[in-house]
């Protein structure tokens, strides 16, 4: 048989190289993103003193670059969102994975996927036009554009992430654990709480962390509904007042600043902060997942 091996191998080698470089490109992009954030954001540290950056006043027009109001705003909105989203997300994941009959699952899963796909501006619009007026009237607030409004909508945004990761974690608990518990006379309810959920706890934890990551990085929705007042959140009461997050600050102000100005550099500095937060959240979450996989491999072998 006639074989054109040498031509074949040259082509093969070229294709292998191309495919491998596509794989490496992911690393390149992370480095590029990091590089551009650093090169545009780090100068801020030379231009604004650390003391000012840690100040409580954000008013760039008069050169006040205190980041604390923004950081506390992000924290408050995110914590509020997490407090709402975690129980609902995990409860729904348990329901879908353990309790729901097949037909309910077939309805729930695509709907959750739809929620995950809703553009954040659409949620923001609903928040702006419907949710915030409703909150203002019902909670008797001065304005409906508050941190709490943002938390509610961010909860809606992070719930699909929490559900899908937590559901995967629950699904990966071996059938035999459940069977063993049921065989010992536990009810399904007891099995869920005492066997399945504890067995899946690292995955459920990951779900929560990724949900937090999703919430803290969300931009448009919070910008539209939180009222954007950069005030320091120093009491729980502030949850029902306007707030300003790090993401919304970048989005709202970057369009108007001059390239290379102090303000421009500080906005990139905030970007570095967000990048670092997402790095820590995602690397930790993936470490949890990796460890879990290793353990399950050990059990299986």
């Amino acid at each position: 048989m006639k074989i054109f091996i040498s031509q074949l191998f040259d082509k093969e080698r070229l294709i292998t190289r191309l495919i491998a470089s596509a794989g490496y490109s992911a690393i390149l992009f992370v480095l590029l993103i990091f590089y551009f954030l650093i090169s545009e954001g780090l100068p801020a540290l030379g231009e604004v003193s650390l003391h000012s950056l840690l100040g409580t006043r954000w008013y760039p027009i008069e050169e006040y670059y205190g980041l604390l109001p923004l950081i506390s705003g992000s924290l408050m909105v995110t914590l509020g969102a997490t407090a709402i989203a975690m129980p609902i997300g995990i409860g729904t994941a348990v329901f879908i994975a353990e309790v729901a009959p097949r037909w309910a699952r077939e309805i729930l899963k695509p709907l959750v996927e739809v929620l995950g796909g809703l553009p954040s501006v659409v949620l923001g619009l609903i928040g702006f036009l419907i949710l915030s007026p409703a909150l203002r009237v019902n909670l008797n607030l001065a304005t409906g554009l508050t941190a709490f409004t943002g938390s509610l909508l961010l909860a809606a945004i992070s719930i699909p992430t929490i559900i899908s990761v937590a559901e995967d974690a629950l699904d990966s608990v071996p059938r035999s654990y459940r069977d063993a518990a049921l065989a010992l006379g536990a009810t399904e309810w007891q099995t869920i709480w005492r066997v399945t959920l504890p067995a899946a706890r690292s995955g459920v934890l990951t779900a929560g962390m990724l949900g937090v990551g999703r919430a803290i990085g969300e931009t448009m929705t919070v910008m539209m509904v939180t009222g954007n007042a950069p005030v320091l959140a120093n009491s729980l009461r502030m949850l029902f007042m306007p707030a300003r997050t790090m993401t919304a600050t970048i989005a709202a102000e970057m369009g108007e600043v001059a390239r290379g100005s102090v303000h421009y550099h500080v906005l990139f500095l905030i970007g570095i902060g967000l990048f670092m937060i997402s790095l820590v959240v995602n690397v930790t979450a993936s470490a949890v997942v990796f460890r879990q996989r290793k353990r399950s491999e050990r059990i299986l072998s």
């Binding site: 992370v30 954030l37 990085g217 993401t247 970007g271």
Partner: peptide, 16 residues
């Protein structure tokens, strides 16, 4: 890197 790319906030992509 892929996990990290997936987690970077969209507004940071805007900055980049």
């Amino acid at each position: 890197a892929i996990i990290n790319l997936a987690g970077i906030p969209s507004v940071v992509y805007g900055l980049f």
